[in-house]
C-alpha cells in the first residue's frame, strides 16, 4: 500500500470490527476523556464533500458506534472538519470558529478543495488552502473523499495527539 492507513493495520489484519471499535474507544477516552465531537464547517464547497460527511451517519457507515458525533457549537467540539475551497468571506469566520474551540482541538481538512483548492484554485474568490489560516492536523484527499477516508483522516488526527499532554 502506498498510502497511510491506521498504523495498527500494518502489523495485524483487523477483521474483527468489534475490537477496532474497542481500541478506538480506548484511544479516544485516553486522549479526550470522552467520545469525539466533530464540528463541521463549510468554507465554500460544492457540497459533494458534505454529502459524504453526512453519509457518515447513515446505517452503512454508522460512525456513531466508533464514538464519533457531530456537534453544533465549536465550544463543544474536539475536531473541526473543514470542507470546501476557502473563500475570502469565510476566512474570518473560520478563524473565529477555530478560536472558539477549547483545547485540545484538531483540524481535519477534508477534500481536495480544502487542501489545495482543487478546481477552484484559479477563482478570484479563492483565498488559499485551509492551512494558510489555521493549523491542520490531517488531510483527506479525494473529490469527494469516501466516508472511509474521512474516518481514517479523523483517526490520523487523533493519532497525532497520542502521547501529548491535554493542552
Amino acid at each position: 500500500m502506498v498510502f497511510d492507513v491506521s498504523t495498527d493495520s500494518r502489523n495485524e489484519v483487523q477483521s474483527d470490527w468489534g475490537s477496532m471499535e474497542q481500541r478506538m474507544a480506548q484511544r479516544l477516552r485516553r486522549i479526550f476523556g470522552h467520545s469525539l465531537n466533530i464540528r463541521h464547517i463549510d468554507v465554500g464547497s460544492c457540497n459533494a464533500c458534505e454529502s459524504e460527511v453526512l453519509s457518515l451517519s447513515n446505517p452503512y457507515y454508522n460512525f456513531h458506534r466508533l464514538g464519533l458525533f457531530f456537534t453544533a457549537s465549536p465550544r463543544h467540539a474536539d475536531v473541526l472538519l473543514v470542507t470546501g475551497a476557502m473563500t475570502h468571506a469565510m476566512e474570518d469566520v473560520l478563524l473565529t470558529t477555530y478560536t472558539a474551540m477549547p483545547q485540545p482541538r484538531l483540524v481535519v481538512a477534508t477534500g481536495v478543495c480544502a487542501i489545495h483548492g482543487g478546481l477552484f484554485r484559479e477563482s478570484p474568490e479563492f483565498a488559499g488552502p485551509v492551512d494558510t489560516t489555521i493549523p491542520v492536523d490531517a488531510y483527506i484527499p479525494g473529490c469527494p473523499p469516501t466516508p472511509y477516508a474521512i474516518i481514517n483522516g479523523i483517526l490520523q488526527a487523533v493519532d497525532r495527539r497520542k502521547g501529548k499532554k491535554p493542552c
Partner: peptide, 17 residues
C-alpha cells in the same frame, strides 16, 4: 487507480509521491 478507499494522511508532504 489505486483501489484504496481510505486515503488520508497527517502531513501535507505525505500526499506527494
Amino acid at each position: 487507480w489505486s483501489g484504496d478507499v481510505t486515503v488520508a494522511a497527517s502531513g501535507r508532504r505525505r500526499l506527494i509521491s
